[in-house]
Amino acid sequence: MLESYLPILVFLAIALGVGVIALLLNFLVAPRNPDPEKLSPYESGFEAFEDARLRFDVRYYLVAILFIVFDLEIAFFFPWAVVLDELGATGFVAMAIFLGILVVGFIYEWKKGALEWE
């Protein structure tokens, strides 16, 4: 069974190789003579005015949390999809109820305006 994951391992190795080779080539080939001015951070040619970290709107959290909820829903779908032909109608109805409850939440968030970006 583990053999079926071999392509993923090969993929990981190639991805790692490409990343490392790109960095290594850059490190070896690109000219480097840094001085303090070159290395100093700047924004639009000026010295940085303030820190990059700033308070931000809580609605980013809202989007992320809504995403996590529906991501977890997807996690429930995978075992269902694998065994659906064994389960038959019961499994289908079970997932329909599950999905129905979450669609209630989806309609609620849509109507409430949580998906609007004012």
């Binding site: 809504l66 909820v69 977890l72 939440g105």
Partner: peptide, 9 residues
């Protein structure tokens, strides 16, 4: 999950 969704909103 529904409770989490409503609570977040």
């Amino acid at each position: 999950l529904l409770v989490a969704l409503v609570a977040a909103i």
